[in-house]
Simulated scan of single mutants.
Amino acid sequence: MTIPRDQSRKAHELQQQGLSLQQIAAELDTSDDRVSQLIAAYQKQQPAEPQQPWWHGLSPHTRVFLQEQGMHSRADVEQGYRDGLFTRGHPNAFRSITAHLRRRIVEWLNQPVQPYRVSQAEYPMDETITLRLQADTVRELERIAKKAGTKPDALVEALIMREAECK
């Protein structure tokens, strides 16, 4: 069964506005089950966003300290903060935490979580990779590159970049 994109998008938007499945069903004149299908279809159509590691923005030392304390997500650190684990003098406070480390953790918690975006800085322009190609493929690549008046590696790079721009 094909699900119209505009209908699945509308169901998703209504859900984001806080409407219940029943309210969305009434708005779209359909059943609750159909609304669930529409929302699932919309989410499936969306490209997966790359995710930052939960410790993004922390120094390696701070991250290791938190992991040694049993914290393995930002939510764990937020809960620990609410529980007083970073508060000097609190009965549950980490005993080995320094004022400097405590301050860095609190500053990190106060920073808004930014969506992850891949920047060109993460992929240096002069990085080299090696491709293993069959002999026939190499000959064909060299023939096409010669015909185009360029080098084979420039041809492969242009192909990859053009494909990346299409996404």
Rank of each mutant, 00 (worst) to 15 (best):
T87G: 05
G84P: 12
R34V: 01
V64D: 09
T87K: 10
W55L: 02
E78S: 13
L19K: 06
V106L: 06
R63I: 00
D6T: 09
R9Q: 11
K10Q: 12
G70F: 13
A11N: 07
K147L: 15
Q111E: 14
Q69R: 05
D29A: 05
Q45Y: 03
A26C: 09
L21Y: 07
R63P: 01
V77N: 00
Y81H: 14
G84F: 11
R82K: 07
G57K: 05
S73W: 00
I39C: 06
D83K: 02
T137L: 10
K147E: 12
K44R: 14
H12F: 13
I39M: 04
E142T: 06
A41D: 04
G18I: 08
L38Y: 02
P47E: 01
V77D: 03
V118P: 00
Q37C: 01
D153Q: 05
M71F: 13
S8K: 01
Q45D: 04
R104N: 15
V35H: 02
G89D: 07
L131I: 08
A154S: 11
Q67G: 03
Q46I: 02
V118L: 08
A11P: 00
H12N: 02
W54N: 05
V77Q: 07
W55E: 11
G89W: 09
T130S: 10
L28P: 10
D29K: 05
K10N: 05
P112M: 12
Q22C: 01
Q134R: 15
N110C: 04
T87Y: 09
E127N: 02
D153K: 08
P91V: 04
F65M: 10
Q7K: 02
F65V: 00
S73R: 04
L14K: 07
D153N: 14
Q46T: 05
W54F: 13
I144H: 06
H90G: 10
Q69D: 05
T130W: 08
Q16E: 15
P112A: 06
E68D: 10
E27L: 03
E49F: 04
Q46W: 14
A25M: 02
A93V: 07
I105N: 06
S36D: 00
T137M: 13
E142P: 07
G84Y: 12
A25Q: 00
R88Y: 02
K147F: 10
I105V: 14
R63W: 00
M125G: 13
E13D: 07
L66R: 07
H72D: 10
R95K: 15
L58I: 06
M125N: 11
Y123P: 06
A75H: 01
D6R: 06
H56V: 04
R139Y: 10
P152W: 13
H90M: 11
K146P: 06
G18E: 08
L101A: 12
Q51L: 11
D126K: 15
H61W: 10
Q67V: 14
G84L: 04
L141Y: 12
F65Q: 07
